[in-house]
Amino acid sequence: MISALKNDLESIFKDIQISAPEDDRLIINAQKDAVLTILKFFKDKGYDHLAMISCTDWIEEDEFELIYIVGSYSVYAPAAEDITSDKSGVSKEAAFNGGNILLKTRISRKDPRFITAIPVFENSEPYEREIHELFGVDFKGHPRLTPLFLEREYKIPPFRKDFDTRRYVKDFFDQIPFVENKEK
């Protein structure tokens, strides 16, 4: 099943690298223009569940990597006879269960802009909001990129590798005096 999916993908999309490190996992490296089309392709195939969007800061390569993890609850679920017929457990094909699709793409770190995936998966809204807040990636078309977790403004978004947490703690938290010391 995963090989069929792989062949399908390779015939439709050019310029992508596909690897399958495990039976139930498919890693796709794609150009950033193709991301929404590939997501739509998987959604049409029955991958109806966007598990999460993640971001990695590759500071030495000057790039952010966005990772879309897509799974399925419906189409590739094992049929009932698949499970009952094989006494040793679930068969390999059935165990695949759609698996996880990891779609990776790189965007520039200097000008971190991307387009929102909300038209395809509506639940990408909070993930993109979080990435905007913690990495400073701007998602075009997102309706509200307002703060989600943080209370304070940071000059550099705190999950970037060049954010110096120790200096920040020294400059901010350590500057607040103890009440006992303040009196003296």
Partner: peptide, 16 residues
């Protein structure tokens, strides 16, 4: 969390 960006370090600075 001594070097965390978002965790306060000494609670007794803010409430007794």
């Amino acid at each position: 969390y001594w070097d965390s960006y978002n965790t306060i370090k000494h609670l007794d600075k803010y409430i007794p």
